[in-house]
Each structure stands twice: as C-alpha cells, then as structure tokens.
Amino acid sequence: MIISTTENIPNKEIDEILGIARGSTVRARNVGRDIFAGLKNIVGGEIDEYTKLQAHAREQALQRMMHDGQRLNADAIINVRFTTSMIMQGASEILAYGTAVKLI
C-alpha cells in the first residue's frame, strides 16, 4: 500500500475516494521511566525513554491506519497526518489518519 503525506501520487490517478483510514494507540508513562526522566530533567538533554515510547506509538498508529486502509480495500492512503492528544495525566493518544483511495 502506498502511504503519502501529499494530495496525490506521482504518475497515478485517483479513481475513487473510499473514506478516512485511521489508526490510534493510547500510551501511558512508566514509573521507572518517570524516575529516570526526572533525573534527566535536572541535567538536561533528550529523554530517550520518552522518544522511544513516542516513536513506537507512532509506528503502531501508522500500522493500524494501514490495516484500516486495507479493510477499505484502498490502494493508497494520501494526506497522511499524525496528531497527539492528552487523554489523562501521563497518558496520550497518537492518531494517524489519511484519505483512503483507489488508484487507476
């Protein structure tokens, strides 16, 4: 399946718009990571544990979006975007979404 952040796919023509494909995951922080992050906050620098947590969450949301696109029988998902929202203290949702299309 073709995944793109653009409105079209070069050298391809959109035949049909199938709807919105989406995938999300909600992740909570980990107490052990929070302790290490608190220490890192004093010293400064990147908090690798949270970077890895967010990267994994984005990848999972993207995979779920692609699965939703397959369910819609899409050839591609265009205009792909990511958004994040806080669900509660210490937990956030990552949402990947785009337009599922059939190509000629």
Rank of each mutant, 00 (worst) to 15 (best):
E93S: 10
A57Q: 03
T5W: 07
M65W: 05
G38E: 04
G23C: 11
E93Q: 15
G98F: 06
L18M: 05
L18V: 03
P10T: 09
D34E: 15
R64L: 13
R33Y: 15
G69R: 05
T25N: 03
L53M: 15
N41V: 02
I104M: 08
H67D: 11
P10F: 04
S85R: 07
L72E: 10
G23S: 09
M66D: 04
D48W: 02
L72G: 06
S92L: 01
M66Y: 03
E16H: 12
M88C: 08
A76P: 01
L18T: 04
G23Q: 05
V26P: 02
I35D: 00
M86R: 00
D48P: 00
D15V: 13
M86I: 07
N41D: 14
V101P: 07
L95A: 01
H56V: 13
E59I: 05
K52V: 07
A28Q: 13
R64H: 10
I35Y: 02
E59Q: 12
L62E: 12
D75S: 01
T25S: 05
G98M: 09
K12H: 13
N73R: 12
I78W: 05
N30M: 02
T51V: 15
V101H: 06
E7A: 13
E7N: 14
L18I: 02
E93W: 08
D68Y: 07
H67T: 13
N73A: 12
L62W: 01
G98A: 08
R71Y: 01
N11K: 10
F36P: 01
G90Q: 04
I3R: 11
R64D: 14
E16S: 13
G44N: 08
M65F: 07
M65N: 09
Y97P: 00
M65L: 10
A57S: 14
S24A: 12
Q60E: 14
N11V: 04
E7M: 07
I35E: 03
K12C: 09
I42T: 02
I9Y: 03
M88G: 05
G32T: 11
L72Q: 15
D34M: 13
A74F: 05
R71M: 02
A37M: 00
T99N: 07
I94P: 02
T99Y: 04
G19C: 03
N11T: 08
T5K: 12
T83A: 13
V26C: 00
D48H: 00
G69K: 04
T51F: 12
L62V: 07
D34T: 12
A21Y: 09
R64E: 14
E16T: 14
N30K: 08
M65C: 08
M1C: 08
G32K: 10
G98R: 01
I20D: 05
N73M: 09
A57V: 11
Y97A: 05
M86P: 01
G90V: 08
R27Y: 01
G19M: 04
R71V: 00
R58Q: 13
A61Q: 01
K102C: 09
I2A: 03
I9L: 09
T84W: 02
R22G: 04
G23N: 06
T25V: 15
S92T: 02
T5N: 11
M65I: 10
I104F: 10
Q54A: 11
R22A: 11
R22L: 07
G69N: 07
A28S: 15
I78F: 07
R81A: 14
H56D: 11
